[in-house]
Design a protein around this nucleic acid. Structure first.
Length: 895
RNA sequence: GCGCGCAUAGUUCAGUUGGUUAGAACGCUACUUUCACACGGUAGAGGUCACUGGUUCGAGUCCAGUUGCGCGCACCA
């Protein structure tokens, strides 16, 4: 290589990545045109929380989307990837509350609703959307001018429209129900926002005496602190132990209230004592039972999980868990504690607040889900929407078939305020776009807007069409909806995916997307989930700094099998970094041979006689790779295509083809040099494009370094490679034999290298060798391309001669292609060589025995496909020949 | 309890409809700083594909069961 090197020895991604991203964005490559005549291809980003920062999960998720977008763009589609963020009600409100507490020592109550919301917006402007900026560093080709936020005017309008339509249709209603309450965030939650954790607790057994003094009933409970709200004790009507006591009165200890012993089939005879204390205000099952028996409902807790006055002066103000201890102590003191058992059970935790949820009776807004679920289930069942991996269909179906009404109201301030207005006078509720001037029932003009806001997901479920300004029939909506692919985590299949399908079918009359790809969950090297508390989640930006964005992208896709969790560690990014460096050096090598061929784009004009066997081989292999990578991308087999490209470029193109080109390039006068350079460039240009969706930066840089794209253009704008036709391949002399013959040759070369390694003969020592080909075809094959062959064998001379018998000590390399004899006078160690050959002999003999056994099985010969049997027969011939050679050699050693 | 997933080399994992001698990366051993790349190259060691049975001419692959691990859903207070 000359003194002035064109490219540095090792690829340094930092500058390249920075340069290309701003070029792509500034030139508007990511911006979709709704007026384009191209077929649209749309993806809407799963909007990250506006408070969020980039995690490896986002890297995986967004790289996959970026791969699809870049691939489809190169395929000539009008691609539109809509980015945006989610207002994330609870998370954001909590974050800003914490911020205000820390900075100004203020609570949201100090500020009041309006002032607080101003602060949230200010916070959002200042700190929000970090993640959106970070997405650029990993190369995401989002249509940034179309960035949306779920609290934008447009999206808020869509939310209001949907609420009103569903209300008018009778699918939204206000109900008095037991819901999941988060005492920390002080809001209702949906069932999906509750996570159950197994917890070791106790089962307390308490004696509740009969009012008439005739003994007592023992009840078992996990929640002693709720007993002040008990309004009955229930037993199974069939339970012989209690049958004659049903209807009798009990005295609730501590409180002194008279409660009845009721019978209800809900109670299991075999659990505990068969008697259950009933607390309608604090347990959903008890509430249902209470309705059946007309029981009084006594709420004994405040919204923050402390006890209220109804719990009694003794306990008022106590936290629920403090109260639990106090109640147990009190009952023990009163002699009502029978005994305590250890008990492991599931406790529901608030997803955001990470505290146990409290079942709480309150007025909330709900969406009636069954009518929406039916068509949404059908769309997936009949394959209009496909899931990858498909097994999630089962999970989806199960949820859809057991769907419960969705609690959508939240007692928060940050979010879309429910467009409902209550008459101060008569309590009549009106749902409207704007505040009505007067109550439609009593005419009173004093109306109050509902103070609750909507669940964040109530805006997210409209995302695929609200981002295009629905209900306005915008150009974009008509053009880019429905979208094509959705890439998201399986953890939000109910929260988001299912609901989007329902909303789209309901409001757009169409599916929101065709394919849903569920990503893997990223774990650390020990298999643990990435979490803040474990401090085991690497910062992707640091990884990018250390290894490069392409390296991170490639690595994470490469190690992510479809539907399986990933074990990630930073060191794994060496895979991607080394690979990028490898490709970099291919171009570095290529440029040392002069500029790119003018007609690198195609192989037009070349014919079989212009090409060496290795050229035909790499063309054949590249063609297979083009076809299978294209197919792989369409089938969402992302890690598979990474492996294919990695193996092809590294193990085939670099290890064999590039080495095979070296002697030709060294021969300045070689006639074929131009043709070989063309094939080389054709391959390079093709695989850079194949790799571009996964490694966008380094591929565009190298594409330009090679001069494959003009300065003002980009690999992004180039066409996706297509496989050559059979006709073209025939013209180039690529036949069914091309690949197997080349591989046979490589096998022979490897065998000679093994001998070199055994005797420590350096590659630089050129050998005079003789090859005895297996047959005529092989003779012809090995007689061509002598320049290349000599280089690959490291030979001074190669004599291709059938029937050659060595007359001195030599090493022998046996393969299906032929046998190579390497003179080793003075070097060969007979004992060593015999050992090596014996091992080889044993290996092949064992294999041959297996094949013979197979072929002697009549059933195999009769029932297996002809090609399979034929192949086995060929193996017999091949291995017999090989064994023969090995034995001959052994004989010559006198073994 | 119901459903789902996983078990392949020392480690982390590929292995698409059953069909050559089960692959890769990292690690390990030997050689190699040779003019693309030491983020490199060449060669090598290393596997009863968790276990048991079945289907088949043929099973890492399909079926049933067992064991172990993980996840989701639903729960009896």
């Amino acid at each position: 290589m000359s003194e002035e090197q064109i490219l540095s020895k090792a690829y340094d991604p930092a500058e390249v990545e920075k340069k290309w991203y701003s070029i792509w964005e500034n030139r508007g490559y990511f911006h979709a045109n709704p007026k384009s005549s191209k077929t649209p291809y749309t993806i809407v980003i799963p909007p990250p929380n506006v408070t969020g920062i980039l995690t490896l999960g986002h890297v995986l998720n967004n790289t996959l989307q970026d791969i699809l977008i870049r691939f489809e763009k190169m395929n000539g589609k009008e691609t539109c990837w809509v980015p945006g963020t989610d207002h994330a009600g609870i998370a954001t409100q909590a974050k800003v509350e914490a911020y205000l507490k820390k900075e100004k020592n203020l609570t949201r109550y100090d500020l009041g609703r309006e002032k607080f919301l101003e602060q949230v917006w200010a916070w959002k402007e200042k700190y929000g959307g970090t993640i959106i900026k970070q997405l650029r560093t990993i190369g995401s080709s989002c249509d940034w001018p179309r960035e949306r936020f779920t609290m934008d005017d447009g999206l808020s309008n869509a939310v209001k429209e949907v609420f009103i339509r569903l209300y008018e249709k009778g699918l939204i209603y206000k109900g008095h129900r037991i819901i999941n309450w988060c005492p920390k965030s002080r809001t209702a939650l949906s069932d999906e926002e509750v996570n159950y954790k197994e917890e070791k607790g106790h089962l307390w057994y308490f004696r509740y005496p009969f009012a008439d003094g005739s003994g007592h009933v023992i009840v078992a409970t996990t929640r002693p602190e709720t007993m002040m709200g008990d309004t009955a004790v229930a037993v199974n009507p069939e339970d012989e132990r209690y049958k004659d006591k049903i209807g009798k009165k009990l005295i609730l200890p501590i409180v002194g209230r008279e409660i009845e012993l009721v019978a209800d089939s809900y109670v299991e005879k075999d659990f505990g004592t068969g008697a259950v204390k009933i607390t309608p205000a604090h347990d959903p099952n008890d509430y249902e039972l209470g309705l059946r028996h007309n029981l009084e409902v006594i709420n004994i807790m405040n919204d923050d999980g402390t006890m209220n006055a109804a719990a009694g002066a003794e306990f008022e103000g106590m936290d629920r868990y403090v109260c639990r201890k106090a109640v147990v102590a009190k009952l023990e003191e009163l002699g009502c504690l029978d005994h305590i058992e250890d008990y492991t059970h599931q406790v529901g935790y608030s997803e955001r607040g990470d505290v146990p949820v409290e079942p709480r009776l309150s007025d909330q807004w709900f969406v009636k889900m069954e009518p929406l679920a039916a068509p949404a289930l059908k769309a997936v069942e009949d394959g209009r929407i496909r899931f990858y991996p498909e097994r999630w269909v089962k999970t989806y179906r199960h949820w859809m078939e057991n769907i419960k009404d969705w609690c959508i109201s939240r007692q928060l301030w940050w979010g879309h305020r429910i467009p409902a207005y209550t008459c101060d006078k008569c309590g009549h509720i009106m749902v409207a776009r704007d505040m009505p001037s007067a109550c439609e029932k009593c005419g009173c003009d004093k109306l109050t807007q509902e103070s609750d806001v909507l669940d964040t997901w109530f805006s997210s479920w409209l995302w695929p069409f609200s981002v295009f300004d629905w209900p306005r029939q915008s150009e974009e909506l008509k053009r880019f909806f429905p979208t094509q692919s959705l890439v998201t985590g399986p953890d939000i299949i109910f929260f988001w995916v299912a609901r989007m399908i329902m909303a789209s079918l309901e409001f757009m009359g169409d599916i929101p997307f065709k394919d849903v790809y569920f990503t893997s969950i990223i774990r650390d090297e020990k298999g643990r989930k990435m979490s803040k508390s474990l401090n085991n989640s690497p910062d992707p930006l640091e990884v990018v700094k250390q290894y490069g964005a392409d390296a991170l992208r490639f690595t994470i896709i490469y190690i992510a099998p479809v539907g399986q969790d990933i074990r990630y560690s930073n060191e794994k990014c060496e895979i991607g970094r080394n690979f990028a460096n490898k490709i970099w050096n291919v171009v570095r090598f290529r440029l040392s041979q002069g500029p790119a061929s003018a007609d690198w784009m195609s192989l037009d004009g070349l014919s079989s006689t212009d090409l060496r066997a290795d050229d035909q081989w790499i063309i054949a292999r590249l063609n297979q790779v083009v076809a299978s990578v294209t197919e792989g991308l369409r089938a969402f087999r992302f890690n598979d295509i990474c492996k294919q490209l990695y193996d092809f470029i590294w193990s085939e193109f670099c290890d064999w083809y590039l080495e095979s080109c070296k002697p030709v390039f060294r021969e300045a006068d070689s006639q074929g040099k131009g043709n070989v350079l063309r094939v080389f460039d054709y391959c390079l240009g093709t695989f850079l494009r194949l790799l571009h969706p996964v490694m966008p930066f380094v591929t565009d840089e190298l594409y330009h370094q090679m001069g494959f794209a003009a300065e003002e253009s980009s690999i992004m704008l180039s066409a996706w490679p297509t496989a050559l036709s059979d006709e073209t391949l025939a013209k180039l002399g690529v036949t069914v034999d091309t690949v197997p013959m080349a591989e046979g040759k490589f096998e022979l070369i490897r065998a000679t290298r093994t001998i070199r390694a055994t005797y420590q003969i350096a590659m630089s020592k050129a050998l005079d060798m003789v090859i005895v080909p297996t047959g005529e075809k092989e003779t012809a094959y090995l007689s061509k391309d002598m320049l290349t062959l000599k280089s690959l064998f490291g030979a001074n001379t190669i004599t291709v001669q059938a029937g050659y018998q060595p007359d001195g000590p030599c090493g022998v390399a046996v393969s299906g292609m032929g046998t190579a004899y390497i003179p080793l006078a003075g070097i060969v160690n007979v004992e060593e060589e015999v050992k090596r050959l014996r091992k080889q002999e044993a290996e092949w003999e064992a294999y041959l025995a297996g094949v013979r056994r197979k072929l002697s099985n009549e059933n195999f010969v009769a029932r297996a496909p002809k090609e399979v049997v034929e192949k086995e027969r060929e193996h017999i011939t091949e291995f017999e020949e090989k064994l023969c050679r090995v034995r001959e050699q052994l004989k010559s050693f006198g073994a």
